[in-house]
């Protein structure tokens, strides 16, 4: 059950960033939020703004693991209209001009199950997708989809949570591919702030059990927080904080205010700057800094 995706756009990106001794910035936005035009504008601007990996939300009517920010964003996207084919179409168009930035899709299983796990995996690979995160598919239920993802050289990225104990962690790591996504808080997305020393202790403990890159997400809202995590994590995921700028920048008919895309991309630039400079200078240049007293 080990990762069979040997080499990919995603592994290459992590290799490259490791050489530069810095973490990847992963930015999350929801496909077609608040409408297809603004979404496409953001997608076009993200690589230049400093997103090293693009995570796209595939909206679901019942996003049970998400807090209010991503719930609203999914709702807006569904109102604007969005199907799996729309999401894949946007990625395929992006691949016309952007070949190096990995794209990961995040969503819930039901829309994929209806689409067909085999058909979805093939279509996603053809569109230029690199991996998927399916929130409600723990390792126990994942094989139905994962067999087809592997066959199409796509990574299935699994979450490890603060509740994932020592006996369970090997099971998660055994299935993981691409990178391991450590959920930094006990909670849904965008509602709590991550505790850096706790997270760094957990990441250090996980490193003893896996060679895969380890990303950290949930509860990271500012460039400063992203920088703190980027000192020891291989990837830092920011979602709700980006989505909130969209929420604040539209009118009640979901029409974006002038300059909204630029505001979102400016925030991504801030985040990128934080992540890119996190390990420069000072005493934090080692890739893993175990906090004192946290007892991994």
């Amino acid at each position: 059950m080990s990762a069979l995706v040997a080499e990919s756009r995603l592994t290459r990106r992590f290799e490259k960033l490791k050489e530069k001794n810095r973490a990847a910035l992963v930015t999350f936005i929801t496909a077609n939020d608040p409408d297809p035009a603004l979404f496409r504008q953001l997608l076009e601007g993200l690589p230049t703004a400093g997103a090293d990996i693009i995570e796209l939300g595939m909206p679901f009517s019942d996003p049970m693991a998400d807090g209010p920010s991503v719930q609203l964003s999914s709702q807006r996207a569904l109102q604007a209209g969005v199907s799996i084919d729309d999401v894949l179409g946007a990625v395929a168009d992006m691949r016309e001009w952007e070949m190096d930035t990995p794209v990961i899709l995040m969503g819930y299983y039901n829309p994929i199950y209806r689409y067909g796990p085999a058909e979805f995996s093939e279509a996603a690979a053809n569109a230029g997708v690199d991996g998927v995160i399916i929130v409600d598919l723990p390792p126990e239920e994942a094989e139905e989809l994962n067999q087809h993802l592997r066959a199409n050289n796509l990574h299935m990225i699994f979450l490890a949570a603060p509740t994932t104990d020592e006996t369970r962690l090997p099971r998660v790591l055994d299935h993981a591919s691409g990178f391991v996504y450590y959920v930094a808080v006990k909670g849904v997305t965008g509602t709590k702030s991550a505790d850096v020393s706790e997270v760094s202790a957990r990441v250090a403990a996980m490193r003893k059990q896996t060679d895969l890159p380890i990303g950290v997400g949930f509860g990271i809202r500012t460039a400063a927080q992203a920088a703190e995590m980027a000192r020891f994590a291989d990837a830092v995921v920011v979602g709700s904080a980006i989505v909130d700028i969209i929420t604040d920048g539209i009118d009640k008919d979901r029409r974006p205010q002038p300059g909204l895309a630029a505001r979102v991309l400016d925030f991504v630039k801030d985040l990128a700057n934080g992540v890119q400079t996190a390990r420069l200078g000072g005493d934090n240049e080692t890739s893993v800094k175990t906090s004192t007293g946290a007892g991994a």
Partner: peptide, 14 residues
């Protein structure tokens, strides 16, 4: 049936 929940909940369900 099955157990289609987020990883955070899996240890609790078990």
């Amino acid at each position: 049936g099955g157990r289609y929940v987020a990883e955070t909940l899996m240890p609790l369900i078990l």
